[in-house]
Design a protein around this nucleic acid. Structure first.
Length: 309
RNA sequence: GGCGAGGUAGCUCAGUUGGUAGAGCAGCGGACUGAAAAUCCGCGUGUCGUCGGUUCGAUCCCGACCCUUGCCA
């Protein structure tokens, strides 16, 4: 284990609905022994297939996939759990390892690792109850000013709570220093689409989910798991499907909402990749899949695989 | 056809007792090291339906016309 060579992988980034899953699969299929690790925070949920645009059963049977179907929708999940799984999966790779996904935090974790205290359940519960009782002010009042001043967005409850967790776990200002730790271990190709094209694809995907059985999937899932975890329950498509099934949203409103949230997600993902990663942007316009695969391959050959933490 | 209501940002609407206008949503940009499909921050010029009149000045008042909508025929 300690003699293992440093792990490396070929990354392919891109916002949702750009077509990266399909393209990565196509590229990996030609490589003997290849496996694919998904870096996507929603593909980890078992049974949530249609709304998350998971690789098809056929694709899953063709190539070993990691990062998919790790927990049930009623279970909590975290980037830490994903990383743990990812490391195991990567170490078991027998051939080239490919990583594709749009969850920036996961990509960063994979290439940079984490260097802050691991969240402790008791500490987390304490912070949560502070938040429930006193809101953001309660959280802020328990944080040293020196830590608050290092945060980019001191009005963000989620990040304030995490900061408090770090502090209560023994971390100090130093844990928040160092500025950006970008995914700089290597350049990697990032797929994009012209905005109008992406929006059209997202629209079609949203409509396709509902006509493709999303409601049935959700109905069955709810029968089996009456209460979902916060993360699974807020997944795009699933939150809206539940709202529709409970009569809180009309069908066309639900479809619109899914499309809008997906567009917003894609924009945030592109922002992340633009500024937090060392991306080689490949815009996919009229090119055929073969042509795009070729261009991705060229970037991989030129820059080599990215080292994992 | 008659009477009424309305035509303002991509959408739904607010507003200006006459000094050229603002919210929500959408969109765009940004932050982001363990909930990340989350969370948070920033960005609002648009022939104020058309044409004419009154006025120093009209999106606002007056007139005509066009369109939408409700009720009555």
């Amino acid at each position: 284990m300690n003699a293992a060579p440093p792990l490396k992988a070929f990354l392919l980034g891109g916002a949702t609905a750009t077509g990266k899953t399909e393209l990565c699969h196509r590229l990996a299929r030609n490589q003997p022994g290849a496996s694919i690790l998904s870096a996507d925070s929603m593909l980890v949920y078992r049974g949530m297939d249609i709304g998350t645009a998971k690789p098809s059963p056929r694709q899953l049977a063709e190539i070993p996939y990691g990062g998919i179907n790790l927990v049930d929708p009623d279970q909590p999940f975290s980037a830490g759990l994903w990383l743990q799984h990812a490391k195991t999966f990567a170490s078991q790779a027998r051939g080239p390892l490919f990583v594709t996904g749009g969850t920036g935090l996961y990509l960063r974790a994979l290439t940079e690792g984490f260097n802050r205290p691991v969240p402790d359940e008791a500490v987390r519960a304490r912070v949560r109850s502070l938040w429930n009782e006193g809101g953001i002010d309660a959280i802020r009042s328990h944080l040293p000013q020196s830590v608050v001043s290092l945060l980019d967005d001191p009005g963000n409850p989620r990040r304030l709570m995490r900061a408090l967790e770090v502090v209560l776990s023994g971390g100090d200002e130093r844990a928040f220093l160092g500025g950006r730790v970008a995914v700089r271990r290597g350049r990697f190709p990032v797929l994009s689409r012209p905005r109008e094209v992406l929006h059209r694809r997202i629209r079609l995907r949203a409509e396709g989910m509902f006509s493709g059985g999303l409601l049935e999937e959700v109905r069955a899932l709810r029968r089996r798991y009456p209460v979902w975890s916060e993360t699974a329950g807020s997944a795009i498509g699933y939150a809206e499907a539940v709202a529709f099934l409970e009569g809180r949203l009309g069908l066309s409103e639900a479809v619109d909402r899914v499309a809008a949230r997906t567009r917003q997600l894609a924009r945030r993902q592109e922002t992340w990749l633009r500024h937090q990663a060392d991306a080689v942007w490949l815009e996919w316009g009229d090119e055929s899949p073969e042509e795009m695969a070729q261009r991705v391959q060229e970037v991989w050959e030129q820059d080599g695989p990215v080292a994992l933490a």
